[in-house]
Simulated assay, not measured.
Amino acid sequence: MADIIWEDAFCGEGASCFRLGTDADGNGYVAIAGAEQNHLTDSAEALRQMIRDIKAGKADHLL
């Protein structure tokens, strides 16, 4: 398994806290803080696009 570098947790209003991570191969990861072993994996660009969509209000129900 690749070494994942996790960023600080992001917590929404009263919601679960999420962490984003990357590895040296350019993969991106997202997990609930404290449960990083159960992460989702995709390309870093796919996760960047998801974050841009959330910030644009297209998927704010995910937070």
Rank of each mutant, 00 (worst) to 15 (best):
1 M>W: 02
1 M>F: 07
2 A>G: 13
2 A>Q: 13
5 I>K: 15
7 E>R: 11
7 E>N: 15
9 A>G: 04
9 A>M: 01
9 A>L: 01
10 F>L: 14
10 F>I: 15
12 G>L: 03
13 E>C: 10
14 G>S: 07
14 G>E: 05
16 S>V: 09
16 S>L: 14
17 C>E: 10
17 C>V: 06
18 F>E: 01
19 R>W: 01
21 G>H: 06
21 G>K: 04
21 G>C: 01
22 T>L: 06
22 T>M: 05
23 D>Q: 03
25 D>H: 06
26 G>F: 03
26 G>W: 03
27 N>Y: 02
27 N>G: 01
28 G>N: 02
29 Y>P: 02
31 A>H: 03
32 I>K: 12
32 I>V: 14
33 A>C: 07
35 A>K: 09
36 E>R: 04
39 H>F: 14
39 H>C: 15
39 H>R: 14
41 T>P: 02
41 T>R: 15
43 S>V: 09
44 A>Q: 13
44 A>I: 04
46 A>Y: 05
47 L>G: 02
48 R>W: 08
49 Q>G: 02
50 M>T: 12
51 I>M: 13
53 D>S: 07
54 I>K: 04
55 K>W: 09
55 K>D: 08
55 K>T: 09
56 A>S: 10
56 A>L: 05
56 A>E: 01
56 A>D: 07
58 K>D: 03
59 A>W: 07
59 A>K: 15
59 A>G: 11
60 D>R: 14
60 D>P: 05
62 L>I: 08
